[in-house]
Simulated assay, not measured.
Amino acid sequence: MTTNTNDATDGDANGEDDFEEYADLGATTSNAMDIAETSMDRVRELVPDETLADRIRQKSVHATGDPEFQYLMRFTGADEDEPVRAGARAVLDEQPIVTDITMVKSGITGRGHDCPVQKAIGNGAELAAETGMTRTAASVLELDKQGVYDGAIAVVGNAPTAALALADCIEDGTRPSVVVATPVGFVKAAESRQRLREVAAEYGVPAITNVGRRGGSGLAAGLTNELVHVASDVREGTVSLDE
């Protein structure tokens, strides 16, 4: 299971915008920035740095400490960059970021965006008790009934059943701006991501996922934070979302 990503959620406001400036890997001091920049420079020696999708691959390698993880990433859309563009636009539009569990929510940076961030877990308790489904699946279905996932950045970092429930919601008409799904484990994890990819492709929902058993909350948070970073670069004029 992937560990945390070191994307901190505190820092000093930049004084110019309503949000706090994004600092890569959570760095705020000069020493921390040197470490962060050196770390990412080493990652870029191992992963291409040509496309928006490459930035997600780089973040996956950094989050897992495994250069081979870049080859496990999958991008659902008209091209590989589409889900990154969609995610960055959603950040710029201040769409909600909805995670499956608390750990993923805790890893989402508090800088560089004004998106409301909420977790699904804790909702749908009655549905779980009545049906016997997992709490995470029931939570996703409950929030979906409230329309929370339409237009949102939907993030699943832990629970395969949450990913399967989200796929059902998309099949029934829900349209997140983008899906980031890296549920981890030996039971239904790979299958849940495969189903999400298939449903997302069928209904035109951009998605970032991975193959295999690995994944986890830290990875999901790190990938989502990279969407925030791309949006920050767009805001600064150093990156364009034009196709």
Rank of each mutant, 00 (worst) to 15 (best):
2 T>S: 14
2 T>D: 12
5 T>N: 15
7 D>H: 15
18 D>L: 09
18 D>T: 15
19 F>K: 04
22 Y>C: 03
23 A>R: 14
28 T>K: 10
44 R>L: 08
55 R>G: 12
56 I>K: 01
59 K>W: 12
64 T>Q: 02
68 E>L: 13
69 F>C: 03
71 Y>H: 15
72 L>R: 15
77 G>W: 01
82 E>R: 00
82 E>C: 03
83 P>V: 04
86 A>H: 03
87 G>N: 05
89 R>C: 08
90 A>N: 01
91 V>E: 01
97 I>V: 15
104 V>E: 02
104 V>R: 01
105 K>A: 13
106 S>K: 13
109 T>A: 06
109 T>I: 04
111 R>I: 05
117 V>T: 15
127 L>E: 08
129 A>V: 00
129 A>F: 11
131 T>R: 05
132 G>R: 06
133 M>T: 15
137 A>W: 04
141 L>W: 09
149 Y>Q: 04
151 G>I: 06
153 I>W: 01
156 V>K: 02
162 A>F: 11
168 D>V: 09
170 I>A: 05
171 E>M: 10
177 S>A: 13
184 V>A: 08
188 K>C: 08
203 Y>C: 00
204 G>F: 08
218 G>K: 04
218 G>D: 06
219 L>S: 06
221 A>W: 06
224 T>A: 05
233 D>V: 01
234 V>Y: 07
238 T>E: 12
241 L>W: 05
242 D>A: 14
